[in-house]
Lab assay of single mutants.
Amino acid sequence: NKASVVANQLIPINTALTLIMMKAEVVTPMGIPAEEIPKLVGMQVNRAVPLGTTLMPDMVKNYE
C-alpha cells in the first residue's frame, strides 16, 4: 500500500503548506501520494483541513 499525505495539524484556509504540516500515512481512500510532499510545499489549501485529514487533490490550489 502506498502512503498518502495527511494533515499533521489543523491547516487554516489559504495557508501555504510547509513540511511540518504534513505526514505520510497509509489511508483509505488514498489521497495525494506521499512522494508529492516536496511539490506541495508552498502551495495553498483552498479550505480548512482538520488534523488527521487526508489531503485530496481538490483541497490544494493549482495542484495537478
Rank of each mutant, 00 (worst) to 15 (best):
T54G: 04
I32C: 06
A48V: 11
A24R: 03
L17I: 03
M21L: 10
N62H: 14
N8K: 11
E36Y: 07
Q9E: 14
I20P: 15
V45R: 01
K23Q: 03
T28N: 13
G42C: 13
P50H: 05
L51V: 14
L10C: 14
E25T: 09
A24F: 15
P38S: 09
T28L: 03
P29I: 12
E36V: 08
I32H: 01
A16T: 08
T18C: 12
V6K: 08
G31I: 02
N62L: 08
P57M: 14
I37P: 00
E64K: 15
A3L: 11
I13P: 09
V49Y: 02
V26L: 11
N8S: 09
G52T: 04
T54C: 13
Q44C: 11
L10G: 12
L51A: 08
N62S: 14
L17D: 01
P38K: 12
A34R: 03
M30F: 07
V49F: 02
D58I: 09
V26W: 05
D58H: 07
E64L: 09
L10H: 14
V5S: 06
T18E: 12
K61I: 09
P12M: 08
V5H: 00
T18H: 11
V45M: 09
N14G: 08
L51R: 08
V49T: 10
E35D: 06
N8R: 14
T53C: 07
E25M: 06
N1V: 15
Q9K: 07
T15A: 07
P29L: 15
I37A: 05
I32R: 00
A24C: 13
A16K: 08
P12S: 07
T18W: 03
M21S: 09
P57N: 04
R47V: 12
E36F: 08
Q9L: 06
A34V: 10
V26F: 07
M56E: 08
L55Q: 01
V5M: 02
Q44H: 11
I32L: 06
M59W: 11
S4V: 03
K39H: 12
T15E: 10
K2I: 15
Q44G: 03
Y63F: 06
M56G: 04
K61P: 10
V41P: 08
E36P: 00
L55N: 00
L40Q: 01
T15N: 10
A48D: 11
L10R: 10
I11G: 00
M22S: 01
T18R: 05
G42N: 09
G42E: 10
M30R: 02
G52N: 12
N8E: 09
T28W: 02
I32F: 02
P38L: 04
E35P: 12
R47M: 05
V27K: 06
I32D: 00
A48R: 12
M30D: 15
P29K: 11
A7K: 01
Q9M: 06
L19R: 05
L19Y: 05
A7Y: 00
V60C: 06
L10Q: 11
G42R: 07
S4Q: 03
M21H: 10
V60S: 01
A3F: 04
V26D: 15
V5R: 00
K2D: 15
I11C: 04
L40D: 00
A16D: 06
E35Y: 04
E36S: 11
I11L: 10
T15C: 09
A16E: 09
A34E: 09
M59F: 14
Q9I: 12
V49P: 01
L51E: 08
D58M: 08
V60R: 00
V6Q: 13
N8A: 09
A7M: 10
A48Q: 04
A7D: 00
P12G: 06
D58S: 10
T54H: 03
T54Q: 04
P33H: 09
I13Q: 11
N14C: 13
L17Y: 00
P57F: 06
E25L: 04
Q44N: 06
P50K: 11
P33C: 15
Q9S: 12
N46W: 11
P33I: 13
A7W: 00
P38F: 08
P50Y: 11
P33D: 07
T54F: 02
E25A: 05
L17C: 02
K61D: 12
V49N: 01
M21N: 12
V45G: 01
P29Q: 15
K2A: 15
P33N: 07
P12L: 12
V45N: 05
I20T: 13
K61G: 12
L40A: 01
V41N: 03
G31V: 03
N14V: 12
L40V: 06
T53L: 14
P57C: 15
G42H: 07
M59Q: 08
K23F: 07
P57K: 12
L51M: 12
L40I: 05
T53I: 08
T28C: 15
Y63E: 03
A3E: 14
L19S: 13
T18F: 06
M21D: 11
L17P: 01
E35H: 04
T15Y: 04
L40E: 00
P57Y: 07
R47Y: 10
E25R: 06
Y63D: 03
V6F: 03
P29W: 15
L55I: 10
E64Y: 02
M30A: 06
L17E: 01
T53F: 09
N62T: 06
M43I: 06
N8M: 15
K2V: 15
M43H: 10
K23I: 05
N14K: 05
T15G: 07
L40P: 00
A7P: 01
A24L: 04
A34F: 15
Q44I: 05
V60K: 01
V60Q: 00
E36A: 08
L10A: 13
I37W: 02
M43C: 08
L51I: 14
D58K: 09
V27A: 14
M22K: 00
E64C: 15
M59S: 11
T28I: 05
T53H: 11
R47E: 13
N46C: 15
P38Y: 13
G52M: 05
P33F: 10
P12A: 06
A7L: 02
P12Q: 11
A24I: 08
K23P: 01
V41Y: 11
M56A: 07
A48T: 11
M21R: 04
P57Q: 08
T18M: 04
G31P: 00
G31S: 03
P38H: 14
Q9C: 10
E25N: 10
K2T: 15
V45F: 02
P33T: 09
M43F: 14
P29M: 06
L19G: 08
E36R: 12
K23S: 11
L40Y: 02
T18S: 10
L55S: 00
I37T: 04
A24Q: 10
T18I: 05
M56L: 10
M22E: 01
T53R: 08
E36W: 12
K2R: 03
T15D: 07
I20R: 07
K2Y: 15
N14Q: 06
N62D: 05
A7Q: 01
